[in-house]
């Protein structure tokens, strides 16, 4: 179910004094089963872009195709698009409203027309996926811890069983343990559940570890695109637009500049460790 956007432009408050162009002529394709990291500084348009993928925003100009179908053409049910393309917003725990965890997680599938008899299974599956104990089902979501709330909110999207999942800064505001849990959940969804993942983030470390392809945005445009190796070679440019490369990659780049024989195209701690051990052995 590839997602394709063509020449997408979006202007906030069009025709008002506070008019602001958020996206300019963006063209991008996301293939089935891909893991795409979408990175950019605050205000670069990344959140605006992903809100087009499931029809929450209607482009000022340009088209969005899902499975080759223009989602804003007549007769396309946006609800079914939103079932296929799940979206986890930033700080998703702020959207919890149910009296019980069950009610909240079941909200999405219920709206999608899943019969009541099946709801229980859906909720159980979703909670198990995010690693929450099923005994929490009858608790109020408001009495859970911050990390648990976030997992309930993610489960609420997973319960719709979307084929593509968009996550907007899913680790923002979590402690290191919560961060690791959410990131390994995302990795699991990609590898085991074979979902297409679009991870929006400004943390280079997070996206570098997981994504197969990076899309870098600045000022409402896509400025860089490619595998992490290719993108991180542009360290100076990334810094100029307020981003950077993972610290460990930076280390290799500096070493290389100083004349050491290292290959700077690594971006996870493990790979860099290996590279440095190799270097030390030759010295």
């Amino acid at each position: 179910m590839p997602i394709r956007v063509e020449n997408l432009s979006y202007t906030y408050n069009a025709g008002q004094p506070m008019e602001q162009e958020a996206l300019r002529n963006v063209t991008l394709t996301i293939e089935d089963g891909e893991f795409v990291g979408l990175i950019g500084h605050t205000g670069s348009g990344k959140s605006t872009l992903v809100q087009h993928f499931n029809g929450l925003l209607k482009p000022t100009s340009g088209k969005i195709y899902i499975d080759g179908v223009d989602i804003f053409s007549k007769g396309v049910s946006l609800r079914s698009i939103r079932q296929k393309v799940g979206m986890v917003f930033q700080y998703p725990e702020y959207q919890l409203f149910g009296e019980t965890v069950f009610e909240d997680v079941a909200f999405g599938p219920k709206n999608m027309g899943v019969p009541d008899a099946e709801l229980n299974d859906r909720v159980d599956q979703a909670l198990a996926l995010v690693g929450l104990d099923l005994s929490l089902k009858e608790r109020s979501p408001f009495e859970l811890s911050g990390g648990q709330k976030r997992k309930v909110a993610i489960a609420g999207v997973l319960a719709m069983q979307p084929q593509t999942l968009i996550l907007d800064e899913p680790t923002a505001g979590l402690d290191p343990k919560g961060r690791d849990e959410v990131l390994s959940l995302v990795a699991h969804l990609h590898q085991r559940e074979h979902k297409t993942i679009i991870l929006v983030s400004h943390s280079m470390e997070d996206v570098a570890r997981l994504a197969q392809r990076l899309v870098v945005m600045a000022h409402g445009e896509i400025v860089l695109e490619g595998t992490p190796e290719v993108v991180f070679r542009q360290a100076e440019y990334l810094e100029a637009i307020g981003l950077g490369v993972p610290q460990v990659t930076r280390l290799l780049q500096v070493l290389k500049k100083q004349g050491f024989a290292v290959d700077p195209d690594h971006y996870t701690i493990e790979a860099v460790e290996e590279e440095i051990v190799k270097l030390l052995e030759t010295m």
Partner: peptide, 16 residues
């Protein structure tokens, strides 16, 4: 702004 955000989040879950 908050209302818009929450509306979008619930719409993403099929709310109408």
């Amino acid at each position: 702004e908050e209302t818009e955000k929450i509306m979008k989040a619930q719409m993403a879950r099929g709310a109408d």
